[in-house]
Design a protein around this nucleic acid. Sequence first.
DNA 1: TCCATATTTCTATGATACTGGAATCATGGA
DNA 2: TCCATGATTCCAGTATCATAGAAATATGGA
Lengths: 108, 108
Amino acid sequence: MEEKEIIRAMAALANSVRLKVFRALVVAGQQGMTPGAMAMALDIPANTLSFHLKELAGAGLVTQERASRNIIYRAAFDHMSAVLGYLTENCCQGSACVVTTVPAACDC
Amino acid sequence: MEEKEIIRAMAALANSVRLKVFRALVVAGQQGMTPGAMAMALDIPANTLSFHLKELAGAGLVTQERASRNIIYRAAFDHMSAVLGYLTENCCQGSACVVTTVPAACDC
DNA sequence: TCCATATTTCTATGATACTGGAATCATGGA
DNA sequence: TCCATGATTCCAGTATCATAGAAATATGGA
């Protein structure tokens, strides 16, 4: 995993709209959500939401799949997990840490 | 943990200099590093580094302690852990996830 | 007290990002 | 084909952030 990728992911989550959207998708899980549903639930203008979804997708934090007239967005748990792992890599000069494992991968 | 705090932490890590600094502090562990050592190791002008350290400290990601003429910076593992946990809270509509635990707290 | 070193603050400039109105594109049904 | 709905792109104004030179502040030793 490269630094640029990590920065992209962090920057993506460093915004109120995107953080809310991402968390909503995390909660939604495998089922995902459409932009329409998100715009409704979070009270965000459609174009603004679209801008942020593009940002999240570019960062690899969400995936999209067309389903007829709708597009379903889902949180990309595996990518998220890889990003978080990067932050504590080689922790404490390689000594055994209390918690060394990487978190939050989800297969639901 | 509030949204503002998370955003602050994410924004702090969404920068090349700060990400490098934070990772260096993660590797350094309990021992920490001084700005001088970081400036040297990462080849960053002292004032620029100071600006970014302030940002990281404001985000709660690093702590500082004066030791004579130097100031020792350390990664704030507990805060980091809390931030990461927020991202996957209430994951997948509360169903049991493959990995539900929160990561990367370190007691070294 | 005076000096050297470590670190931070001040400041200006340039770059990048957020927002939402209007227009556009895509899909499926009548 | 035509229309309605879902979603994205275009655009412009505004705000926020990154960088580094120069100056200022702390600390400890001579």
